[in-house]
Amino acid sequence: MKRSILYCALLVIVALVANCNNGKAPLDNPSRGSITIAADESFKPLVSQITSAYEGIYPNVKFTLVFRPEQEAINMMLRDSARLAFTTRKLTKNEQRALDQRKIIGGAVKIATDGVALIVNKANTDSLITMDQLRAVFTGKIKTWSQLKGNQNEPITLVFDNNNSSNLDFVLSTFGIKSVDGLRIFTTRSNREVIEYVRKNPSALGFIGVNWISDGDEPLTTELSADLRVMGVSSKPNPTGRADYYQPFQEDLGMQRYPLRRPVYILSREAHPGLGGGLVNYLIRDAGSLIIYKVGLWPSVRYNREINLQK
């Protein structure tokens, strides 16, 4: 009799295990599980703070963050090496086709407006530039700081975080430039290394994601911003005063005054209501937009707080 009862209990357990998600690992959900997120390295401060806050709310959640140049981050998402990707663009038709072949709808949600910041050494007094002048730098018509009426006589060294940097791609596409042959370009391995290089080289003009230096509450921002100037950029060909120049900080991003602004998207390949969707909803429907605001970017969906005043 005891053997019969034990045998029946064993059959029930086996049946439950076999029927639990068809033998696959349990699916994650918005409050439990672990996924990998790929992101362009220029968004590292933003993504790190967002995911850390979400993990603080849900202790059973774990995000593995991988920071790569934008195209590599997108490829990781397409190959299913990452569930989400933080990027500056949506998928191309060919990239979307890769998901369509697997019958995955995917998605792209704009969460913020970011800006590419132009930084120079503090010893360089030239802190203003027009879009026409910047175009001339990238077409080789302007080669030295003296042509920009700066106090440096050296050639302008353009500094980016990677050969495949989203920062570099964005600037080139803005000006319709196909080749960088003949330009004085130096690449590092991260936005932080761009900052360090500019700090040591007065002739350098660095390009970084502004969230590296825009969070006034972060000690790292103070550390990284030391001995640097953030250039003001004007879309007017003939500015009449300093008021015509704008920096890539929150209000000028939100009011669309800063010329080198760009969107921030979350690309997803999630096929069920899971952890990835939970994070996206947190950013566009919940208090997550406050983190975007805190970092110094402009959230696509503002968080509305209701305040009751009582006598």
Score class of each variant (00 low, 15 high):
residue 102 R to F: 01
residue 109 V to K: 07
residue 113 T to I: 11
residue 113 T to L: 14
residue 113 T to D: 00
residue 116 V to F: 09
residue 116 V to H: 12
residue 118 L to W: 03
residue 118 L to H: 05
residue 119 I to C: 02
residue 119 I to V: 07
residue 120 V to K: 01
residue 120 V to N: 01
residue 120 V to Q: 01
residue 121 N to G: 04
residue 121 N to M: 01
residue 122 K to T: 04
residue 124 N to S: 02
residue 126 D to S: 06
residue 126 D to N: 04
residue 127 S to G: 08
residue 128 L to E: 06
residue 129 I to H: 02
residue 130 T to V: 13
residue 131 M to L: 15
residue 131 M to K: 15
residue 133 Q to D: 08
residue 133 Q to T: 08
residue 134 L to W: 08
residue 136 A to D: 15
residue 138 F to T: 04
residue 139 T to C: 14
residue 140 G to P: 12
residue 141 K to E: 15
residue 142 I to T: 09
residue 143 K to Y: 02
residue 144 T to P: 04
residue 145 W to C: 00
residue 147 Q to G: 13
residue 148 L to D: 07
residue 149 K to R: 10
residue 151 N to G: 12
residue 153 N to I: 10
residue 154 E to I: 10
residue 156 I to D: 11
residue 156 I to M: 05
residue 159 V to M: 08
residue 161 D to T: 01
residue 161 D to L: 02
residue 162 N to H: 14
residue 164 N to I: 09
residue 165 S to D: 12
residue 165 S to R: 03
residue 166 S to L: 08
residue 166 S to T: 00
residue 166 S to G: 09
residue 170 F to W: 09
residue 170 F to S: 10
residue 171 V to Y: 11
residue 171 V to F: 15
residue 173 S to G: 12
residue 173 S to P: 08
residue 173 S to F: 08
residue 176 G to N: 07
residue 177 I to H: 14
residue 180 V to F: 07
residue 182 G to F: 05
residue 182 G to H: 03
residue 183 L to H: 08
residue 184 R to Y: 08
residue 184 R to C: 09
residue 184 R to D: 13
residue 185 I to P: 14
residue 188 T to Q: 12
residue 189 R to V: 11
residue 189 R to K: 09
residue 190 S to K: 00
residue 190 S to V: 11
residue 191 N to Y: 06
residue 192 R to D: 11
residue 192 R to M: 13
residue 193 E to T: 01
residue 193 E to Q: 04
residue 195 I to Y: 05
residue 195 I to E: 07
residue 195 I to D: 08
residue 196 E to A: 05
residue 198 V to N: 02
residue 198 V to F: 13
residue 199 R to F: 08
residue 200 K to N: 15
residue 200 K to A: 14
residue 202 P to Q: 12
residue 204 A to S: 07
residue 204 A to I: 05
residue 205 L to C: 10
residue 205 L to Y: 01
residue 208 I to E: 11
residue 208 I to T: 09
residue 211 N to I: 11
residue 212 W to D: 12
residue 212 W to C: 05
residue 213 I to D: 05
residue 214 S to V: 03
residue 215 D to M: 06
residue 216 G to D: 11
residue 217 D to H: 15
residue 217 D to Y: 15
residue 218 E to C: 01
residue 219 P to D: 13
residue 220 L to G: 08
residue 221 T to K: 01
residue 221 T to A: 06
residue 221 T to H: 06
residue 221 T to Y: 03
residue 222 T to V: 07
residue 222 T to N: 12
residue 222 T to I: 10
residue 224 L to V: 02
residue 224 L to E: 04
residue 224 L to C: 06
residue 226 A to V: 00
residue 227 D to G: 01
residue 228 L to V: 03
residue 232 G to K: 05
residue 233 V to T: 03
residue 233 V to D: 02
residue 237 P to I: 01
residue 242 R to C: 03
residue 244 D to K: 00
residue 245 Y to L: 03
residue 246 Y to Q: 06
